[in-house]
Design a binder for these strands. Structure first.
Lengths: 171, 171
DNA sequence: TCCATATTGTTTGTATACAAATAGTTTGCA
DNA sequence: TGCAAACTATTTGTATACAAACAATATGGA
């Protein structure tokens, strides 16, 4: 029983460390490239897609469109990206890298996600399966709470949440 | 090989889901209590300690003191906490809950950390060990990068980083 | 065709989050 | 004792991050 308690607090601590380290990685990339973590992340997604519209960029970054607009404003003022309004659908704005943006992308370091992939490639399938199962358990514990109990109790709350829930649940 | 690739992308996805769900939990607590996630977290830490000075609060929350000052400003304007300058060391400001803050704390929901503990308690020691080992591996992969290679290359960078490194590495 | 509705990006307002600079205070050492 | 150095909380400035409201545009149905 006491042993279990220790294991649980170890797990909690490791989750917290994971969060901290990912944040630190982002800050490190910032020192090396001169742009912030989220800005670099946007550059990477835009570079992958060559050209991408704002709403799709927001979805791929798991961010709110309003947040992406701010990030793009700053990247544009640094001449790293270009906005181009679509002629087919004039509501749409496409974003792509400038030559400067492309250069920065070429010399940019990996973000946490890249490091993780690199490190995991050294592991056996069995070990990978074990890691994945463990994470799956954590997600299930927290994810089970995602079915909100007030779905039954109140409709108002759900109506108010509709827009943001949709924004968050883009797969 | 292909199987390994799938496992790796599953792991990455689960890490990302973990981040998202923790953030969502924070927002849920916000709807229920009327105060934001970080504010509730501060209330919980302050309540645990009865009285705590700003710098210790910042350490326990793994946040920069400047951030905590802002959070406390807002909690104070809602009459949920009190600031009291120490008479022993007049540089120190102690914070404690008001009766209102105490009431809110009593009725506040668990944050993600609490849910995680609750869910994990249902697991066997073997399963807990497995989860912990998996997380440990992820932390090691990312943590290995924490020894910065430019420690040798450049001293200037390290001098500039000294202050922030210390702030980040509070254990 | 015409208009209600939906989509898309932006603006506005608020809340984190941190680095750097600052003011007030304490401590250590010469 | 007296002063340099360290500590503590705050202020200032910048960058996320999102909800809500908005303007411009597109689409579908009557």
């Amino acid at each position: 029983m006491l042993n279990n308690e220790n294991l649980i607090s170890d797990i909690i601590n490791n989750v917290r460390r994971l969060f901290q380290i990912v944040n630190e990685q982002s800050k490190k990339a910032e020192k090396e490239t001169g742009i912030t973590g989220p800005q670099l992340w946007a550059i990477k997604v835009i570079g992958d897609a060559i050209s991408i519209k704002i709403s799709d960029l927001a979805k791929r970054m798991y961010l709110h469109p309003a947040t992406v607009v701010g990030i793009l404003d700053r990247l544009e003022s640094q001449r790293l990206v270009l906005r181009e309004r679509s002629t087919k659908d004039r509501r749409v704005v496409n974003v792509r890298l400038t030559d400067q943006g492309d250069n920065l992308l070429k010399n940019a370091p990996e973000v946490a996600q890249g490091l993780l992939v690199e490190g995991l490639e050294a592991f056996s399938a069995e070990k990978l399966k074990m890691i994945d199962d463990g994470l799956e358990s954590l997600v299930e514990i927290l994810g089970a709470q995602k079915i909100p109990p007030y779905l039954i109790r109140s409709n108002e709350i759900n109506i108010n949440r509709k827009r943001s829930e949709l924004d968050n649940n883009v797969s």
